[in-house]
Amino acid sequence: MKPREVRLSTTPTPEEIANLRLGDIVYLDGLLYTAREGVYMRALEDKANIPMELASASAANFHCSPAATIREDGSFDMGAVTATASFRFAKWLPDWMAKTGAKLIIGKGGMSSKDYKAYFVPNGAVYLSTVGYGTGALLGRGVEAVEAVHWHEELGLAQAMWVIRCNRMGPFIVASDLDGNCLFERENAQISKNLDRVYVGTKPAVLKRFGETDDRNDEVIG
């Protein structure tokens, strides 16, 4: 069965978010901004004023550093955009969502259903995953314009807050829903059923390591 395709605004209504199902393919229209550890630390720990109106201008936080440069005349050259793994940002996301009203968290790999239930669902937010990973050129085609880049002098180009106007930017995959379900955990559970069979004919290493698990239902993130 082919996945369902949806066009979505980066300032979506609660109804539009409620309509999303795990595994839907999403294309985005409107403004989105990049924010990752650099922006989170500056805004939440150093209490710097966020240089744009969130969430009225954008409710879509992309965990991304674009392959981009600022030309000498101050204009931007943005080639490819690809997400970075989101689980590393769980420390800041609850405060970030409370402060900015972000409704779409976009990145690589998703979060845990525990995260979704704890602070995505109460904030009416869902997680969109990039595809591949690494459909950077396709996503780059969805960049209509780079509206601004904030804090690049303080944080460097990779950690700066890039504000991107998107036009049918995608594909993204809906990886959480308003019940707090996690697409990746659903797939993990399916795959786990087969693992004992695959591991037949192998044996654990004679030298163990601290913290080692033999439970292959576990994830290495978190």
């Binding site: 990973y133 690494g134 396709l138």
Partner: peptide
């Protein structure tokens, strides 16, 4: 294909 046509990096994490 898009990367080659547009001469842009195939992945944003280069």
């Amino acid at each position: 294909t898009a990367a080659k046509e547009d001469r842009r990096a195939m992945c944003g994490d280069t």
